[in-house]
Design a protein around this nucleic acid. Structure first.
Length: 555
RNA sequence: GCACCGUUAGCUCAACUGGAUAGAGCGUUGGUCUACGGAACCAAAGGCUAGGGAUUCGAAUUCCUUACGGUGCACCA
């Protein structure tokens, strides 16, 4: 139920829309408020008078129980018992489908995220795109969209020629097979350190061989690719993310020519310094390079082909690119080129930009060995979780499994809790912190609620009318916000809203939990509180699941 | 140099998109157990929202400007 619309309808004043209805700073004042200052000009009266007048003509009902006028604000209080019953019965009835919707039915959203490079292990810099994309994927699905997760593999470029060259010179098959991606990466690093001019030219030749379909070169490349995918799939499984397509850059090698032809036909292509470009000067941007002076394609060329392909293959409603803000200009340019090509769907492409990760002593640098590998972070978090569980609840049956869920939750949540555009300075202290605004706090609260529920025998039933106290009412009101929160998270491409909701609800519940006895309460109070606990447990599980985080029943 | 992004409590961040007394967590100090899980709860201290202008009933939020930090700016992705 949309209370803002309801209020507007009841007020029946032409100038007032739902957007004018705001929230008071605290619940004692009311649940909704209408500032009357804008109306002052139109109605030629003081805001205070207007508020008074509107108050006098407002008739309360079973939904809005009280109206007051304070300093030019008109404050509305909802009927607490009615709201509580409406919210709780909805959550209990829908269960883990609460806050899901059909708003996206019939619409496809492509989400390009994670996009790993072949032969490069995951470091913490890859975490954001992976978990933000993964969460958006789940959120869109929850809202009824057909979500298509695309891992746009970085599988094209001269570095693979280098890799093959390095392998031929130094590689040992068994060692690489055993060492997997780290062994491959070591070869690549060694090449960059030791290769002389002769090897560099060999590398270019190997790349050419891959391109021309040479069998040995391609077999080696495919082998490296499969070792990489085997490795990343292990990480994806832990992070709870999935993909529907692994069509990477190579996939588009034969799909670029039509795009280039089209650019030429439409007179957008221009020669400059030997290269083929699209001039974007009149839009205040540097030119978008389509072909190098040696005729080779570029990043933008492949992205143009990929976007075109995706439109044809999926007919998307939106196509998201979850990529760091470093590439802001690139996306602006390539979106603009599509617009100039007359593609009406260019407006449906969205660069979901997020901030960068650095270390406490500066930027990461693979060359200097200043890297924090994601596996290490995951392992440390799981270890820490295990030791905390062992200390606090050593009798727990499945400690290992639980530690996995808790530790991984901390890794994922840490990357999703803040506004995505903010830069992050990675610190182990922070990720390993299990108190306060963390996933562990949310999981703990969930387990706590579950513990209460397991002790409450009998089925859950909601008393017909029960007027909640302040603590209970705060929980109810927060619960009511989940649908809007999920919707906003999708609309703003901001999973952190869901993460914050989870913490907020957990805080409200813990406050209630301390203040109010549940199992030793009596009659309707007991029934209501158990129902409330059940609803909180459900809503917390939903929010964590949308972020890709599990909720152990005990921990 | 130009463009974009950021700057809120000691630290990490919120603030429902222009509304009332700017809120949380961490850290600090002091409290709460005859327990439904203390990974919790309560309280205190901590703010001229980087500085300066402008817009208006009203600004952390919009505009201009300065400072500081980050990112990008032609054949890498």
């Amino acid at each position: 139920m949309d209370y803002r619309e309801y209020i507007v309808k009841k007020l029946n004043v032409a100038e007032i829309t739902a957007a004018d209805v705001s929230l008071p700073p605290n619940t004692e004042m009311g649940d909704y408020a209408l500032p009357c200052f804008k109306l002052a000009k139109v109605m030629r009266k003081s805001p205070v008078q207007i508020a008074e007048q509107l108050k006098d003509s407002f008739v309360c009902d079973e939904i809005i129980s009280e109206v007051s006028a304070v300093n030019g604000y008109l404050n509305f209080k909802l009927d607490k018992a009615g709201l509580a019953r409406a919210v709780l019965s909805e959550v209990l009835e829908k269960g883990e489908g609460y806050a899901s919707s059909k708003e996206g039915n019939g619409k496809t959203v492509c989400i390009d995220y994670s996009s790993v490079n072949i032969a490069k292990p995951f470091h913490i810099g890859h975490l954001s795109t992976t978990v933000i994309g993964g969460a958006l994927y789940k959120i869109y699905k929850f809202l009824g969209y057909n979500a298509v997760g695309i891992n746009h593999l970085g599988d094209y470029g001269t570095q693979f020629g280098k890799l093959i060259c390095a392998y031929k010179k130094w590689g040992v098959k068994e060692e690489v097979q055993k060492g997997g991606i780290h062994a491959i990466n070591a070869l690549y690093v060694r090449f960059n350190e030791e290769a002389d001019e002769q090897m560099q030219s060999q590398a270019r030749e190997y790349f050419r061989l891959i391109e021309s379909g040479d069998r040995e070169a391609n077999e080696l490349f495919e082998w490296f690719k499969s070792l990489t995918l085997e490795y990343v799939n292990g990480i994806y499984k832990k992070l709870n993310v999935t993909f529907d397509s692994y069509a990477g850059e190579r996939f588009y090698t034969d799909k670029m020519q039509p795009v280039i032809d089209e650019l030429r036909e439409k007179n957008l292509l221009k020669e400059s310094e030997g290269a083929q470009i699209v001039d974007l000067e009149e839009y205040g941007m540097p030119p978008c390079l389509i072909l190098r002076s040696d005729g080779a394609s570029l990043y933008a060329t492949r992205d143009l082909a990929a976007a075109t392909y995706r439109k044809n293959a999926y007919d998307f409603y939106k196509c998201l690119y979850v990529v760091a803000y470093q590439q802001n200009l690139h996306f602006k340019q390539f979106f603009k080129v599509l617009e100039l090509m007359g593609k009406p769907w260019a407006k449906d492409l969205v660069h979901v930009a997020y901030g960068m990760v650095s270390l406490e002593d500066g930027a990461m640098s693979t060359r200097k060995g200043k890297v924090v590998w994601l596996e290490d972070v995951i392992n440390k978090c799981v270890e820490k979780a295990y030791s905390v569980i062992d200390e606090k609840n050593s009798a727990l049956e499945n400690k290992r499994e639980t530690a996995e869920i808790v530790g991984l939750g901390a890794v994922i949540f840490g990357a999703l809790y803040n506004n995505k555009i903010k830069d992050i300075t990675f610190s182990y202290d922070k990720v390993l912190s299990f108190e306060g605004e963390t996933s562990v706090y949310v999981q703990y609260t969930c387990a706590r609620a579950n513990s209460v529920l397991s002790k409450a025998d009998g089925k859950i039933e909601l008393p017909p009318t029960y007027v909640p106290n302040t603590a209970e009412y705060e929980v109810v009101k927060t619960l009511a916000e989940l649908p809007e929160t999920v919707h906003a998270a999708a609309e703003k491409y901001e999973p952190s809203l869901v993460a914050r909701f989870a913490v907020d609800l957990a805080q409200k519940f813990n406050k209630f939990y301390i203040e109010c006895k549940i199992l030793t309460a009596e009659g309707d109070t007991k029934k209501f509180r158990i129902a409330l606990t059940k609803a909180v447990h459900t809503a917390l599980k939903i929010s964590l699941a949308l972020l890709g985080i599990g909720a152990p029943e005990k921990m």
